[in-house]
Every structure is written in structure tokens, then in C-alpha cells.
């Protein structure tokens, strides 16, 4: 019974990383999408540019998926032949999944707001697209750092 609990914890970690980071991206892309729609009603020719900016907060969800996937394949759930995961390992995996989950949720939202503001730049000064793109990318740095720690931690604690 206890053995199986380890697998539950590990799966919870994988779920949380995809779930929280995915929520963050959904919120972020949503916020940016509203601003983008506003710009496109005024000037449809800016569609491609604002679409790129809208997509920027979408990466957190992908990072969450990434960690979730590494975890799932590491504990053998994907192959249909789960490995034995002790409670301790399970909890370790859960902890390792948390950085990208939580940071993904919060940074996704923040990046969405920054993207919306950057879309404002493109609306008024389309030639400043390069600079506008950089502000949301700044926020993403912290999602990348969290992803890094999650990946390093997960790969280190997964059962061999």
C-alpha cells in the first residue's frame, strides 16, 4: 500500500506541474489575446505581430508539460508498467515539480499583462516590435530558471 502511495505522489507532482503552469499560460495568453483583438479590430495588418506577442506567455504551459512528461516517462506510467516508487522518492518528485508549477502560474499571468502592454506598443509604433517583444521575454526568464531547477531535480531523483 505504502509503495503505491509513492507513485501517487509522483503522479501528483507531474499533474501539478502541467496543471499550474498550464493555468498560468492560459490566463496569460488570454489577457494578451484580449489586447491583441483590440488592435486587430483597428488595424488587421498587425495581426502577425500581435499574434507573436500573444503567444509569448504560452511557453510556461509547455514547460509544465515538459516536466510532467519527463516525470511520467521516468516513473514508467506511460509505458503501462509503473516502476516501484518509494514514498520518499514520490515526495521528492512532487517537490521537484513544484518550481515550474508555481512559477509558471504566476509568471504566466505576469507575462500576459506585460504582453498586453507590449501589444500597446505595437499598436502605436509598429516599428518598435523588436523592443516590444523583449519586455515579456524578461518575465519569462524566471519561468526558465524554475524549469531548469525542476528538470535538474526531477532527473536527479527519478528512480533509476
Amino acid at each position: 500500500m505504502l509503495q503505491e502511495l509513492g507513485l501517487v505522489y509522483a503522479l501528483l507532482g507531474a499533474a501539478l506541474s502541467a496543471l499550474l503552469a498550464g493555468c498560468g499560460s492560459a490566463i496569460g495568453v488570454g489577457i494578451a489575446g484580449q489586447a491583441a483583438s483590440g488592435v486587430v479590430t483597428e488595424d488587421p495588418s498587425k495581426f502577425a505581430k500581435v499574434l507573436l506577442l500573444q503567444l509569448l506567455p504560452g511557453t510556461q504551459g509547455i514547460y509544465g508539460l515538459l516536466v510532467g512528461f519527463i516525470t511520467l516517462s521516468g516513473i514508467g506510467v506511460l509505458g503501462g508498467d509503473p516502476k516501484e516508487v518509494t514514498v520518499k522518492t514520490g515526495l521528492l518528485i512532487l517537490a521537484a515539480c513544484l518550481p515550474i508549477g508555481v512559477v509558471g502560474l504566476i509568471s504566466g499571468r505576469a507575462q500576459g499583462q506585460t504582453s498586453a502592454a507590449a501589444i500597446g506598443i505595437v499598436a502605436k509604433k509598429p516599428d518598435q516590435f523588436g523592443k516590444a517583444m523583449l519586455f515579456p521575454a524578461m518575465v519569462e526568464t524566471y519561468a526558465i530558471l524554475a524549469l531548469l531547477i525542476s528538470i535538474l531535480a526531477v532527473t536527479a531523483v527519478l528512480p533509476k
Partner: peptide, 23 residues
Amino acid sequence: VLSYSRLLALGLATGVIASVINQ
């Protein structure tokens, strides 16, 4: 210097998501 860790993170992201799709 830490900022360059994105080279690893984005490189991994490409490979892992491609694997997810293949799977």
C-alpha cells in the same frame, strides 16, 4: 551567466515536446 541556462532549457523543450508528440 545564469541567464544562459535558457540555452539548455529551450533545447530540452524542443526535444521533449517532439518526443511527446511522437509518443
